[in-house]
Design a binder for these strands. Sequence first.
DNA 1: TGAAAAGTCAAGTTGTTGCTTCAGTATCAG
DNA 2: CTGATACTGAAGCAACAACTTGACTTTTCA
Lengths: 107, 107
Amino acid sequence: MTPATAALFDALGDPTRRAIVSRIARGPVSVSALATPLGISLTAVGQHLRLLEKAGLVLSEKQGRTRSCALRPEGLRAVEQWAQACRKEWEARLDRLGDLLDALPDA
Amino acid sequence: MTPATAALFDALGDPTRRAIVSRIARGPVSVSALATPLGISLTAVGQHLRLLEKAGLVLSEKQGRTRSCALRPEGLRAVEQWAQACRKEWEARLDRLGDLLDALPDA
DNA sequence: TGAAAAGTCAAGTTGTTGCTTCAGTATCAG
DNA sequence: CTGATACTGAAGCAACAACTTGACTTTTCA
């Protein structure tokens, strides 16, 4: 697993950050808009955002006095790909095993 | 996000557990076989396994004095699906935005 | 039978991390 | 200009989680 992918799963390992990602997926939001429903401080959201941004899941930009947060779909795609790679590796093994059994004399 | 999916991401939020999943994906292994390359105790691996099993990523069964650990592909599939759902939601939004711009008079 | 191997259980330690508060900066609205 | 809003930075705290050790059980095999 590449360090970049590790950062993605580390980031998504926290429920608050997952909620933030979910919310951002519905459209760009400000820091306050994220903080309010979560019931945590702006500072806390800022800390999560920095991590999410570092992981490549989110992109944010300051517009005036507010910060607008957007999703980086590539981050999520990398998550999908790692999970899929693991799964496929396992399933391929099962397939080979099945073929082997099929090839047994008088199966 | 469903509690089951949350458990999946919580489980994959730890680098050691991701390494365990990666290893198991290559084929069934014992607890010792997992512990050795990680350089941690059997106890530690056991604790991770319990969590992974609870999350639905791994299935293990004791055979004699060793425990054989297998992958549960459905767990990984759920991970893929959550990431994909978020991503698609965002991308759909971008598409709608594009359509809107295309429909503008004298674009 | 008895020693080694594989794992489990309970309890304890320690580092990390998610969050807070407080103080500060920058921007907007009247 | 003034007050309010939106955020940022530094510092500190408290809970959790990963791991360890030591004692124990069960299985293997020579």
